[in-house]
Design a protein around this nucleic acid. Structure first.
Lengths: 149, 149
DNA sequence: TAAACTATTGAAACAAAATTTCAATAAGGT
DNA sequence: ACCTTATTGAAATTTTGTTTCAATAGTTTA
């Protein structure tokens, strides 16, 4: 059950401790489940997955935990769709961008180093400190194009 | 009061007509006000600005008009913050990216052609049709860095 | 220009997302 | 084991956005 040093678990625990907060089972269960989801997710989906595994974690706790996970860089808001936010875990993943089809809602990830380059150069020129970047392409995928675009 | 051909007004009217919808004063007032805001805005701000000018446009109409303006490419969702969406008009503006300071909430625009290049190449490789792109850098601006980042 | 058709409007009801309240619990230090 | 206080779940609340519906008003047709 113990995770090796440098794991998301350890990072989260260290972060929580450093902030003077308490490392609770609920927080760990939420974190573990998020890192079991190898896809984008929303609060409702996460909540249901936890319930199906027998955990009785409230949505309030999920809503309270997510900002912490984002603050310590383990989780990211990916996009806002259908009236609510969608997330993904990012620790251990290379930075990547997203293509979203406006018709079938499919989401594809892709990688391009120029994006980080652009961000790095901006940060250097304006003296800002980057926390995260987000690049999205919205449009119609090859199957859907022509249908409404 | 009439705008020259190719103006946002004309584009919107043509778009509305082509869809078989009706070009109403409310829709035009909303469009005009949006193009008077030379900054990002949210629904509430737009609503208050219209009220202050004596217009009695309901929020429902704003919520109903925005998707139309987005569909015809005059307006864009820029980012979701504080629980609601923020928009900007884009007609007549070069494509640009955003830096948002997580501390002071300041938003800066910047331009980098490599971003469009990345999108164009992706579209070509995967045969997708681009409707819009979005690039954001989130972090701490030069004044705020060190405070919490 | 009158009549007919039907999309649009404002207001209010509604639904959904996210936050807050609060009493009970439990983490973590002493 | 005790104490302090952060965290929890549940429910209430707030906020965002959507839908309903009767009244209004574009637009087309004759």
């Amino acid at each position: 059950m113990e995770k090796p040093p440098g794991s998301e678990i350890e990072i989260f625990r260290d972060f929580i401790k450093k902030k003077g907060l308490r490392y609770t089972p609920e927080r760990e269960v939420i974190l573990r489940e998020i890192f079991n989801i190898h896809d984008h997710f929303d609060v409702d989906e996460l909540y249901l997955r936890l319930r199906n595994k027998g955990h009785r974690i409230s949505k309030a706790s999920i809503y309270r935990t997510l900002p912490l996970l984002i603050e310590c860089g383990l989780v990211q808001e990916v996009y806002h769709e259908d009236g609510h936010m969608h997330y993904e875990h990012i620790y251990g993943h290379e930075p990547h961008a997203h293509f979203r089809c406006l018709s079938c809602r499919r989401v594809e990830e892709f990688r391009d180093e120029r994006l980080e380059e652009v961000a790095r150069e901006y940060a250097e020129r304006y003296g800002v400190e980057i926390k995260m970047t987000r690049f999205e392409i919205l449009g119609y995928c090859s199957s859907c194009r022509g249908e409404e675009g």
